[in-house]
Amino acid sequence: MASTNSLISSSFTSRLHHPFKDFAPQIFLHPIDSFSILSPIRRENRIVFSKRNIFCASSNNTNAASSIPLKSEQEDYVPMPVVLIDQDSDSEATIVQISFGDRLGALIDTIKALKDLGLDVAKGSVLTEGSVKQTKFFITRLDNGRKVEDPDMLERIRLTIINNLLKYHPESSEQLAMGEAFGIKGPEKKLDVDIATHIHVKDDGPKRSLLYIETADRPGLVVEIIKIMADINVDVESAEIDTEGLIAKDKFHVSYRGSALNSSLSQVLMNCLRYYLRSPETDIDSY
């Protein structure tokens, strides 16, 4: 991908620090609301969405994402929540994939929250594999119809989806780092950041490298990682942001002046990232 399509630009670099000072993920609930949404059409074990206007209602003790009451008795086994943001697989749209075992419904309120961020869910699908239901959305910006490239917005998407998951499936709280960050019951056993953190850089052709980061999740992680790369003039061309329970597993295609990173720059990048990831967590009030 050309450097003009980088996730970051020099003009954007100066405002990356603490981008969420005035932002906290919000739940968008309306007693009755009308909006253009995706209507599921079942085809065997796969559901394909088509657009139409519908009315939806939500109330207390109701899972507005699926219009099904929340279970009063939670099962002993709680599946791992997964939120994947894929910037690589589609040139026209940002792909968001959400799974939480077989407990997710239509995710109507999640789609509404994304629309309130100025985004359009162009299409989507639901695929059931065994006991896991995977919901996939193809998201574009409402103002220009293009995929999301702003790191601020990518993190807003991630936090909004996780916040909705915590709201409608509170049993997921102990499986998510955000469960503690946003005032819900956190995990009983925290991850050791030193043990959980792994960083690798390898060539991915002559013009770019693949950076892989696995570490303990926390708010603002994606934006801070990209800011660190911008500070040493490493360009981010595309990314895959994967939140799996307490762990963040992120992949970035990166380059330096149109070429792959050499061994010296790769080592500098890994050292900078390790220093940040193993440092004390950013104060949640700044978000």
Rank of each mutant, 00 (worst) to 15 (best):
residue 2 A to K: 02
residue 3 S to W: 07
residue 5 N to R: 08
residue 5 N to Q: 07
residue 7 L to I: 13
residue 12 F to Q: 15
residue 20 F to D: 01
residue 20 F to Q: 02
residue 21 K to S: 09
residue 27 I to S: 09
residue 33 D to F: 01
residue 34 S to A: 10
residue 35 F to A: 10
residue 37 I to M: 03
residue 39 S to V: 15
residue 41 I to K: 07
residue 44 E to C: 03
residue 48 V to P: 00
residue 48 V to T: 07
residue 48 V to M: 01
residue 50 S to A: 07
residue 52 R to T: 14
residue 52 R to H: 03
residue 52 R to F: 02
residue 54 I to W: 08
residue 56 C to Y: 12
residue 56 C to V: 15
residue 63 N to W: 00
residue 63 N to Y: 04
residue 64 A to L: 10
residue 65 A to S: 14
residue 66 S to Y: 12
residue 67 S to I: 01
residue 70 L to A: 08
residue 73 E to V: 14
residue 76 D to K: 05
residue 80 M to I: 14
residue 80 M to G: 02
residue 85 I to L: 13
residue 86 D to S: 08
residue 88 D to C: 01
residue 90 D to K: 03
residue 93 A to L: 09
residue 96 V to T: 07
residue 107 L to M: 14
residue 109 D to N: 12
residue 111 I to Y: 02
residue 111 I to A: 13
residue 112 K to L: 15
residue 114 L to Y: 00
residue 119 L to D: 12
residue 121 V to M: 10
residue 122 A to D: 05
residue 122 A to Q: 05
residue 123 K to R: 05
residue 124 G to V: 10
residue 124 G to A: 10
residue 125 S to K: 05
residue 125 S to I: 06
residue 125 S to P: 00
residue 126 V to D: 01
residue 127 L to F: 07
residue 128 T to H: 06
residue 131 S to F: 08
residue 131 S to N: 13
residue 133 K to W: 02
residue 141 R to P: 06
residue 149 E to Q: 10
residue 149 E to W: 06
residue 153 M to Q: 14
residue 155 E to K: 07
residue 156 R to P: 07
residue 157 I to Y: 11
residue 158 R to L: 08
residue 158 R to P: 00
residue 160 T to W: 04
residue 161 I to T: 15
residue 163 N to D: 10
residue 164 N to I: 01
residue 166 L to G: 02
residue 169 H to M: 10
residue 170 P to Q: 04
residue 171 E to L: 04
residue 175 Q to D: 08
residue 175 Q to I: 00
residue 180 E to I: 01
residue 181 A to M: 13
residue 182 F to A: 05
residue 183 G to I: 01
residue 184 I to A: 04
residue 186 G to A: 04
residue 188 E to C: 06
residue 189 K to Y: 02
residue 192 D to P: 12
residue 193 V to Y: 05
residue 193 V to K: 11
residue 194 D to W: 00
residue 194 D to N: 02
residue 197 T to G: 14
residue 197 T to F: 09
residue 198 H to I: 14
residue 200 H to N: 11
residue 200 H to S: 15
residue 204 D to I: 00
residue 206 P to L: 00
residue 216 A to G: 06
residue 219 P to H: 08
residue 221 L to G: 04
residue 223 V to L: 11
residue 231 D to H: 00
residue 235 D to H: 06
residue 236 V to H: 03
residue 236 V to C: 15
residue 239 A to I: 04
residue 243 T to W: 09
residue 243 T to N: 14
residue 245 G to H: 02
residue 245 G to V: 05
residue 251 K to M: 13
residue 251 K to E: 09
residue 255 S to L: 06
residue 256 Y to C: 13
residue 256 Y to E: 13
residue 256 Y to S: 14
residue 256 Y to K: 11
residue 259 S to K: 15
residue 262 N to C: 03
residue 266 S to D: 02
residue 266 S to K: 02
residue 266 S to Q: 07
residue 267 Q to R: 13
residue 267 Q to T: 12
residue 268 V to K: 07
residue 268 V to M: 03
residue 273 L to A: 01
residue 277 L to T: 07
residue 279 S to P: 04
residue 281 E to F: 00
